[in-house]
Design a protein around this nucleic acid. Structure first.
Length: 545
RNA sequence: GCCCCUGUAGCGCAAUGGAUAGCGCACUAGCCUCCGGAGCUAGUGGUACAGGUUCGACUCCUGUCAGGGGCACCA
């Protein structure tokens, strides 16, 4: 949104640096930043601080020359109608101050165009595949999967909104050891239900849901070797419903079984072999991942002839590129962090750059109730499921809570807080701001006119609210750069706070037609941005609460 | 042993290497004849420790201490 002028000004900075003969000293990309505080103008650059050492001159002196040049250049262009001041402040920052009209015009665009005004095209249609959850179909989704689902879905929303061509994919581990064990578990429970005495191994699936599947299998007369597939299919239907109820929809369910059948694994191996990245040792086939920085080589075919998990995964990631995606994002649990180098090595072996794959490790969430961690035991099949969290706090609160900490950080999720209706609970704080705006707009008899006069919005709270709205695009780009949607939750809380402060100090209705109309426009702008942000988080926007 | 994450106010957290480190809870004192008080205002109080890089470090690097998670020819 603020992109246009921000770019114009940074181009101008580059132009001045060139005139002063400093551009070659400054290899970094020139970009203006939003200052941490309104006191420091509307845009800022630290360029003179960075040039200080290279030019062996004090930063203030450099900044002064730069400002002199900038002022001259600005006066030659239409920017002079927007920029009021450029000055050196602090230790040598160059700060740009814009006219209020600039912000009023931006707000008008948002009112007129709605969400379309917030959308940008930075992604330029680049095809990105985001793979997440990908839980084995051996039981209900856990809270760990739930967090991945929330993060992945929201990140996909954001990337799509800023112009990427995004596909959501779930890698379905529908064959192999775990499915065999699942089948074995059902088989034993079936025998138990039929009155046989059984010994149930510890590494088998302990949960009560295995009995349900066994009863269903009995009804449909499924037995022996087909039990694994039957059970996986049964559980997959449950998982799909859980995800739908959580508001997460995948574009593609990629079957490992189909991948194995397709011959792509063997093709991938032969290509790696041609390139000299495979060798045999101790009866196993190894991938030379150390060629690409991994700390040891990895087995892909075990000495008993079966494949390791890495084998299909190598082929799978190569296939992602072959399907036309140029940016792969994988969300994995923390137990997979050792796996990153292996997969990066694999894509490099196929000639891709390591940064074409972004692996996001989604740290675990611990569920608390009244400040006490909820005990769980995976051994007994008693872990907290996505379903339980949804039933208890609802999808809105659940999504917000899973997103409100940096994805790479542990998250404490207190079920009681998520149900509270106070400022302690950020999702209510944000939704309350939204509902409050809707309420004011409902009770207003005045329509917002086309020939709006926003220049009456002179109060400090009004201007900082408009400026907060315009940060939206910057925030989304930070989310993209960090591959982490959590900053959006922070922003929406800040925007809501900014609105509540405005609301308490300044009345919207009955302020005379011009001022009321301008303030209605202002809160409508807030409504549009809040609505858009909540939508990207996958959270509802209640008009009443 | 090796790897990952985290140490910020009594508690829970925030701060794309930037200017005076913000917010909620709790505690104290205020604000509804008024658009939704599920809100707002003010006060109290903080970067684990030791070095280093930098013009500038909560942020990056090294080490120490503390907490959480993970290591496979499992998936």
């Amino acid at each position: 949104m603020t992109k246009d002028i921000q770019e114009e000004l940074s181009d101008l900075v580059a132009c001045c640096l060139a005139q002063l003969g400093w551009l070659e000293n400054y290899p970094e990309k020139i970009s203006l930043e939003l200052p941490t505080d309104n006191r420091f103008g509307d845009f800022t650059t630290n360029i003179s601080l960075k040039l200080s050492k290279l030019l062996k001159r004090p930063p203030q002196a450099i900044a002064a020359e730069l400002v002199f040049c900038l002022q001259r250049e600005i006066s030659k262009t239409s920017l002079q109608k927007i920029v009021t001041q450029v000055k050196v402040e602090g230790v040598g920052f160059v700060n740009f101050y814009l006219k209020e009209n600039y912000f009023y015009d931006k707000l008008k665009v948002i009112i007129a165009q709605g969400k379309a005004a917030l959308r940008s095209t930075n992604g330029a249609g680049r095809k990105v595949l985001i793979e997440f959850v990908s839980a084995n179909p051996t039981g209900s989704l856990s809270v760990a999967h739930a967090r991945q689902a929330a993060v992945g879905d929201c990140l996909a929303n954001i990337l799509a909104f800023i112009g990427f061509d995004v596909q959501r994919e779930y890698y379905l581990n529908d064959e192999g050891n775990q499915i065999n064990i699942l089948g074995g578990s059902v088989d034993l429970r079936l025998k138990e239900l039929q009155g046989q005495k059984i010994e149930f191994p510890e590494n088998y699936y302990q949960g009560d849901y295995i009995y349900d599947i066994a009863r269903e299998a009995d009804k449909q007369k499924i037995k022996d070797t087909s039990l694994g597939d039957f059970a996986a299919d049964y559980i997959l239907r449950i998982i799909k419903q859980e995800l739908i109820d959580f508001g997460v929809n995948f574009d593609c369910w990629y079957s490992q079984k189909q991948l194995a059948k397709s011959g792509k694994i063997e093709q991938a191996f032969s290509r790696l072999k041609e390139k000299g990245f495979l060798y045999e040792q101790d009866g196993a086939l190894w991938f030379k991942s150390t060629s690409f920085g991994d700390d040891k080589d990895r087995v892909i075919i075990k000495s008993d002839g079966s494949q390791t998990y890495l084998a299909p995964d190598i082929a799978y990631h190569e296939d992602k590129f072959n399907r036309g995606f140029s940016w792969l994002i994988n969300l994995w649990g923390p137990d997979h962090h050792g796996y990153i180098n292996r997969i990066k090595a694999a894509i490099e072996a196929f000639g891709h750059k390591p940064d074409e794959l972004s692996v996001i490790i989604v740290q675990l969430a611990t569920i608390f109730r009244n400040g006490q961690p909820v005990q769980m035991s995976t051994r007994r099949g008693q872990y907290i499921t996505l379903r339980e969290v949804l039933d208890e706090v609802g999808a809105d609160a659940a999504r917000f809570f899973f997103l409100m900490r940096r994805t790479s950080s542990h998250l404490d999720f207190d079920l009681e807080v998520a149900k509270k209706q106070s400022a302690e609970n950020p999702v209510f704080y944000v939704q309350y701001a939204y509902a409050r705006i809707c309420s004011i707009l409902r009770s207003s008899a005045i329509e917002i006119k086309n020939d709006l006069d926003l220049s009456v919005l002179k109060e400090k709270e009004e201007l900082s609210l408009i400026k907060k709205l315009l940060e939206f695009d910057t925030i989304l780009n930070i989310c993209r750069a960090t591959c982490d949607p959590y900053m959006l939750t922070v922003y929406l809380q800040e925007l809501s706070e900014s609105f509540h402060k405005f609301y308490d100090l300044h009345r919207v209705l009955d302020q005379g037609e011009v001022l009321t109309c301008a303030r209605l426009a202002l809160i409508k702008g807030v409504k549009i941005v809040l609505s858009c942000g909540l939508e990207l988080l996958g959270i509802t926007q209640p008009e009443k609460m």
